[in-house]
Nucleic acid binder design. Sequence first.
DNA 1: CTCCTTGCAAAGCCTTTGCACGCTG
DNA 2: CAGCGTGCAAAGGCTTTGCAAGGAG
Lengths: 146, 146
Amino acid sequence: MSHCHTLIQNLRQNGYRITPQREMIIESLAHQPGHQTAEQVFDQVKTRTRSVNIATIYRTLDLLVSQGLATRTSLCEGEVVYATRQHGPHIHLVCRQCGCLINADSGLMVGVSDQLQALYGFDADLQHISITGLCTACQHNSPQGG
Amino acid sequence: MSHCHTLIQNLRQNGYRITPQREMIIESLAHQPGHQTAEQVFDQVKTRTRSVNIATIYRTLDLLVSQGLATRTSLCEGEVVYATRQHGPHIHLVCRQCGCLINADSGLMVGVSDQLQALYGFDADLQHISITGLCTACQHNSPQGG
DNA sequence: CTCCTTGCAAAGCCTTTGCACGCTG
DNA sequence: CAGCGTGCAAAGGCTTTGCAAGGAG
């Protein structure tokens, strides 16, 4: 069964009302494998009903984030994406050419994180890292670089 | 002598005209130690003349970026900053609480970069990494988190 | 002289907000 | 029943664009 029930329970326990809109938004977000923009969630929800407004999408996503049930990440190109917390921390690899998004293991960053703490006293949030670069396909498509 | 002359030469050689506006914008960007938003560059330039429009700031910054003379980075909070390339690659540490910006040595990322290439075939651009977290001061100010 | 670059202002994009009605609990 | 949540539409912030005049080369 799906993770979205946990999210819904969580909201309910915190005194928030569960409306059909919120259910659909949560399901759309939770059932997708990766990250989605508000617009993408909107499109998903629209396939099931026309009676949801984009403002409600934003409000619900913000609610989930404020409750710690979802994350909001600003990718390097300025695109803002949301995801439920089920995925756990990971690094976003964003291709600067084709825009594709790869989720990498954030364990790779643990060493760096420790060093940032030691050298700069900075407590890095491994949940929110995104790195720009070129994916495999685009490296081969542009041997000279852009 | 300043780095901005190199930038200006470079533009000229590529057939772009050097206007007083472009000179001032380049100087403002090059003489600042770190990164600046378009608005900050605008403010800088305004201290020297009133006859520059914000649209010109955006157009010139975009020109510099398209010519590879400057970088455009979207920090984790969605703020877009520009910098000339003289600073070399570095990591942006953005405090999610006070918003302060620390430049860290991107050498820390070399190992991670290699692993991303090996594991995901991803060629990370070390020039554009930004990491959210808490700076030293804010770690002590918010022992319980927000 | 040619035409690139600029200022102005309006438009554009994405996101947020005010309001009254409807629905959840 | 109480009041939170919604749709609608307008506003908001930041950035881009169309146009005619002006300046660089």
